[in-house]
């Protein structure tokens, strides 16, 4: 049993390469060619990581497999906007229209092990530029825990929930969380803490 399978979209600079070669985290993750999902036995992993470059039409065609994985107690982590809802708890992305810098400031809404010790200021801006973390919301389902939000409208950018079919679902409406690996500030805590959260499936969603 490994902690995570990341479906590889063959895009550069996603952070995936640094992750799989890392001495500590690398052994905890497998990189699987994206369209090999249908040939992958998911019972050998605790979590499935789906990045922003995912072909969501394909994921929608694999909904039965994804739901069976959740039903067996698995964890699915989704990054990016939702264009093709491929699970019942996912809804189409809603941007913050005409956003200004203040609308993109990250607010912590609830304590969460993955974001423990991560300063929202390190998420709000990179080199003084706002918007990398998120620019809108994948609307959370009823009962979801909102973890981080954006701006004075408190637009939900991160949530987790217990899907009806079982398991856990963590959704980040922005660039891949593994892109923060080795960032040099408090956001680099996200990935090791994500792996630890994955390894404790009893952790409340």
């Amino acid at each position: 049993m490994i902690d995570a399978i990341l479906l590889d979209c063959e895009q550069s600079e996603t952070g995936a390469q640094a992750l799989i070669t890392d001495l500590a985290l690398g052994p905890r993750i497998d990189l699987v060619p994206f369209y090999d999902l249908e040939r992958t036995v998911l019972s050998r992993t605790r979590a499935l990581l789906l990045g922003l470059h995912s072909d969501q039409r394909y994921l929608a065609s694999r909904r039965g497999q994804l739901e069976a994985f959740l039903g067996g107690g698995g964890t699915i982590v989704v990054c990016g906007h939702i264009g093709h809802p491929f699970l019942a708890e996912l809804s189409p992305f809603q941007p913050i229209h005409g956003y200004r810098v203040d609308d993109l400031v990250v607010n912590r809404e609830a304590d969460h092990p993955v974001w423990a010790g991560v300063d929202p200021a390190d998420l709000s801006k990179r080199r003084g530029v706002a918007g990398f973390y998120g620019r809108g919301s994948n609307p959370p389902p009823p009962g979801a825990r909102i973890i981080n939000s954006l701006g004075p409208s408190r637009c939900p950018v991160d949530f987790d929930c217990r899907p009806a079919v079982g398991g856990r679902l963590l959704v980040h409406a922005g660039a891949d969380l593994w892109g923060y690996f080795g960032s040099g500030n408090s956001s680099e805590r996200i990935m090791p803490q994500l792996f630890d959260w994955i390894a404790k499936p009893s952790e409340a969603a």
């Binding site: 922003l52 969501q56 039409r57 990016g80 906007h81 264009g83 093709h84 992305f93």
Partner: peptide, 10 residues
């Protein structure tokens, strides 16, 4: 169309 959210939006 590659099936991603950004292809859908664009």
């Amino acid at each position: 169309d590659g099936g991603t959210y950004y292809h859908q939006e664009a």
